[in-house]
């Protein structure tokens, strides 16, 4: 797994929304990890967070909602070059890797092993993960 935070959004890429979670604080430790990783407490409405997943980039857009701690929601968008179609199978695999990066980063009782077992039970784990 190679998921890394990078600082600059590559130019010439369009943003394709691929996953939205309106309740990123459903488990507060997930939200806290994202706040720390992207320093959202310092600059909550700055540029989106960018993750490089094996050479492909994804934008993490943090969304606020009145009356709730920031961020309340998250939108993940694939950065796709020009007007080329997005490879959805690759995106599924990359999203899985982002989830593994997330649970590993959050730590504690959240583990890649539990995520993979859950994925196997429901047969939703993309090929090539292990």
């Amino acid at each position: 797994m190679s998921v890394q935070k990078i600082n600059e959004r590559p130019s010439g890429f369009r943003s394709v929304p691929v996953l939205t979670d309106p309740e990123v604080a459903h488990y507060p430790e997930f939200k806290n990890f994202l706040v720390e990783t992207f320093e959202l407490d310092k600059d909550p409405l700055g540029t989106p967070g960018i993750l490089d997943v094996d050479g492909r980039c994804y934008e993490l857009i943090f969304v606020g909602r009145s009356g709730q701690p920031f961020p309340a929601a998250i939108e993940i968008a694939a950065l796709v070059e020009g007007l080329e179609p997005m490879d959805t199978e690759q995106t599924d695999t990359d999203l899985w890797k982002i989830m593994e990066w997330l649970v590993q980063g959050v730590g504690g009782r959240w583990t890649i092993e539990a995520l993979r077992t859950t994925g196997k039970i429901y047969r939703v784990m993309p090929e090539g993960i292990e």
Partner: peptide, 10 residues
């Protein structure tokens, strides 16, 4: 796990 943030929507 299946209801964790981001994991559930996926």
């Amino acid at each position: 796990t299946m209801h964790a943030p981001i994991v559930g929507p996926y």
